[in-house]
Each structure stands twice: as C-alpha cells, then as structure tokens.
C-alpha cells in the first residue's frame, strides 16, 4: 500500500533536551498505526510537530493525500496543516465547553466552508445553503460517532467518555485523510473503550482514512492496529505488526527493564 505521510529524520529540540531524535515514520493509506512507548518518549511532541504547533529542528515531513498533489508540511501553521487534511484530538480534552455539541463539530467544518463577512451580513442564498449543509454534515458525523443524543447540550456538560468521542467527531468534520488520536481511551472505563474500539475500526472502513494512534491501553492497541511503532527517548526503537512487537526483546526492555528480557 502507498504511503500517505513520510517522516524522515525528524528531530525536535527544546533547549538542550531532544524530545524527538531522528525519527523515521511512514503512515500508509487506510492503516491504523499505533505509536506506543513509555511516558515522555516524545509521542505527543511528534503529534505537535506534525500538526504545526512546534517547528522541527531538523528533518522533513511530506504528505501525499489521495487524489491531491504531494507536498511538504514542514513549517506550516496548524490551521494550514488541518486544511491539508491532517487533524488531531488532544490528550487533555480541548473542546469548546460553552458551545453546544453541534457547534463544536461545526467549527470543524470551518476550513471546508467559505462564507465571509459580507455573506454573514447579507445572508445570501449561497451562505444559507452552506450553513444548512454544515449543520446536516455535522449532525451526520454526530450520528456516526454515536453521540447524536447530546446534539444540543453544551460540550462542557457531557460525560467524560462522550467528550472524548466529540473530540473525534470534531476532528472528522475537517475531512482529514490522516487522523491523529492522542490517547483517546485515557480515563475511559472498559465499556467505553469497547465503543471506542468499534468506532475507530468503523472510521477506517467508512471514511477510508489513515489513523495514527497514541495509546497506553495495550489491549486496544493490539486488537485494532495494523502496525505498531515503539518510541523511547525520542527514538523509534521498533516497528512491526502487533505480533512482532509483542515478542520484540528491545520493546520489552524499554517497558519492563533489563531483567525481564528472556
């Protein structure tokens, strides 16, 4: 399968600290690639770098979205990266708490719609139609993610699990070809994790997009990932199918320490 994103020799420095160290990573079309590793391994930093929140010190990130021209995303602003089709969720939920669930998702549609100030004031036919389409599209996504019953609630009032799902819904509304999920199962109970598991597989099937996933819940990771990449101290120390990773001595060492390696 063809790669939709290629990261080469990516390095991120914070002062003297090297958070990501010459990392190579390839995301293939329609795959679920899990990124695992101990806390502080540089996984979220990698996400921040891909989405343009941090600038890399070295290395390149190039994308080849299906049906569009390939290009680089080095040094682009976060909103441009999103517009190019890479979107994310946040580890510590960052919804818009005083907006309704529907409005949260509608914000995701912002970069795919175009009404301007004049359109907003005069409210011409095109603007009205676009607004209507935005509402319908957003509601459709809420149905797909299974939180449509909360449509008119304020996002801040949602139960925790639903907030995590709303983050995914909002990200999907930007029509990405790569979705970055930062610990989507954190703080969820087993039942909610099960729902999430189904949802992620469903998104891959229906939306035909690639998913890059940071997660600590190994059962979830092992069950849905096509491939797993393992990071430790900013470096990629292993990559392979779940089966390969499970038996990789380097990975076991990173997680459990020297003495557990058989």
């Amino acid at each position: 399968m063809k790669a939709v994103m290629e990261i080469k020799k990516l390095t991120v420095d914070f002062g003297g600290l090297r958070a990501v160290d010459h990392l190579d990573l390839e995301v293939k079309e329609r795959e679920i690639l899990a990124l695992i590793g101990p806390n502080g391994a540089g996984k979220t930093t990698l996400f921040n770098c891909i989405t343009g929140i941090y600038a890399p010190s070295e290395g390149s990130m190039s994308i080849s979205p299906p049906g569009k021209k390939p290009g680089t995303i080095n040094g682009l602003k976060p909103n441009i990266v999103t517009r190019k089709g890479i979107t994310r969720t946040f580890q510590n939920i960052r919804l818009f708490p005083n907006m309704t669930v529907l409005e949260n998702v509608m914000i995701g549609r912002h970069c795919r719609t175009r009404a301007r100030i004049a359109g907003a004031v005069f409210r011409g036919r095109a603007t009205v139609r676009e607004e209507q389409a935005t509402v319908e599209y957003s509601y459709h996504i809420l149905e797909k993610t299974g939180i449509a019953q909360y449509v008119n609630e304020f996002a801040g009032n949602l139960p925790y699990g639903a907030q995590r799902l709303l983050e995914i819904a909002r990200a999907l509304a930007t029509e990405p070809f790569i979705l970055l999920l930062d610990e989507p199962a954190a703080g969820m109970n087993p039942q909610e994790t099960g729902v999430l598991d189904d949802l992620i597989s469903k998104i891959r099937e229906e939306e035909k997009i690639a998913i890059l996933l940071i997660e600590h819940d190994m059962r979830l990771v092992m069950s849905i990932s096509d491939r797993i990449a393992v990071m430790d101290y900013g470096k990629k120390i292993a990559e392979g199918t779940p089966e390969e990773i499970r038996n990789n001595p380097v990975v076991i060492k990173a997680y459990l320490g020297e003495e557990f390696v058989a």
Partner: peptide, 22 residues
C-alpha cells in the same frame, strides 16, 4: 455565522481552534 462561531471558538480555546483549521 461561520465567522461568529470562529470568534467564540477562539475565545474558548485558541490551540484547539487552530487545530481545527481556523
């Protein structure tokens, strides 16, 4: 409107707002 929503989102969370393409 679309713009008004973007303003409110910006007030609520700047980083999330940018990450959503605004």
């Amino acid at each position: 409107s679309r713009i008004g929503r973007a303003w409110i989102a910006l007030r609520e969370d700047e980083i999330a707002c940018q990450a959503m393409g605004i």
